[in-house]
Amino acid sequence: MTIGENSGPPAPSGPPELELRPPRHRVAPGARLYWAARAGAGWLLLLAVQIGWWILAGGVTGWRVAGVVATVVLGAAHVTVMPRWRYHVHRWEATGEAVYTQSGWFDQERRIAPVSRIQTVDSERGPLEQLFGLSNVTVTTASAAGPLKIHGLDRDTVERLVDELTRTTQANQGDAT
């Protein structure tokens, strides 16, 4: 026998080995505007509180002016940079073998769930998401890490994805545990 020669029976061929890799699809372009609107609403609320405090406390002080200016500058930067950054990072993909997700902006996460482990597939959209024509998909598995969430997809994509995952999951003979 020579080195590299296999003397035993051939190795059993099992399911393909899944690789944690970047997913192929971006979220809907409208997600950028949605993320900007949500962030902007939060900054506007903070600004309103600061201005209300300024009016009720009476008098202009350097600290109050500095606080309002800082809020406006930080808010503008956040509303401008964050949606673009998230759009660049957030990705998803569903194949016959697995669902891949990548999300975050400072704290980025990449996850994979084999189709055989999928227990439920849900879609949802909140009131603000409805205004922007967006929906979300949640893929629940038996993982202790929790469900995979894909945010910021257009409604048609969500309907197709949920249908596809439902069919693929039903056709798969996995135990979903």
Rank of each mutant, 00 (worst) to 15 (best):
F106D: 09
G67Y: 00
L44G: 11
L20Y: 06
L33G: 05
I112K: 01
T166V: 14
G96L: 05
L161C: 12
L74F: 15
F132N: 03
A171E: 13
G4N: 11
S116G: 08
L56T: 15
A66C: 13
A98N: 11
I118R: 00
T141P: 03
R21I: 08
P12G: 04
N6E: 04
V65G: 10
L148S: 04
H78L: 02
D175P: 10
P147N: 02
E5D: 13
Q102M: 15
V81T: 05
L165Y: 14
G4D: 12
P127E: 01
L131A: 14
T157I: 11
N136K: 08
G67M: 07
R26C: 02
G96Y: 03
R32N: 02
G126V: 00
V65A: 14
G174D: 12
Q173A: 13
G40T: 09
Y100V: 06
R111H: 09
R38W: 10
N172D: 15
H90Q: 05
L128Y: 06
G75F: 02
E17F: 12
T157S: 14
R24W: 00
G58W: 07
A66W: 14
W53H: 06
R160W: 05
V115H: 04
R24H: 11
A171C: 02
A76S: 09
L46D: 05
T61V: 07
G40Q: 00
R160C: 08
Q108T: 15
T138I: 12
A39F: 01
I150K: 01
L46M: 15
E19M: 08
A48I: 11
M82W: 09
T80N: 00
P83M: 03
L33H: 05
S135A: 15
R91I: 10
G40K: 06
G96F: 02
A41Y: 01
G4C: 11
P114C: 00
A37C: 03
W85K: 13
T101H: 01
G59R: 03
G42E: 03
M1V: 14
E129M: 15
V139R: 00
I3E: 11
L56N: 14
V99D: 03
P83G: 06
V73M: 12
N172Q: 07
R21V: 12
V89L: 09
W35H: 06
P12A: 14
E164R: 15
P127N: 04
P22E: 15
S143D: 10
L44Y: 06
A36D: 09
P114I: 04
Q102H: 15
A31P: 00
A94Q: 09
P147C: 08
A98P: 07
G133H: 00
T120Y: 11
Q108E: 08
G146D: 10
D122R: 00
T71V: 12
F106Q: 15
P22T: 14
P22Y: 03
V72Q: 05
I118V: 15
G96W: 02
I51Q: 05
A57R: 13
E5R: 06
W43H: 13
G8K: 09
H25W: 10
G42Q: 11
V27Q: 02
L153R: 01
T168Y: 00
E124W: 09
R26G: 13
A77D: 04
A113T: 02
Q119Y: 10
L153D: 02
D107G: 02
L131V: 10
A48G: 12
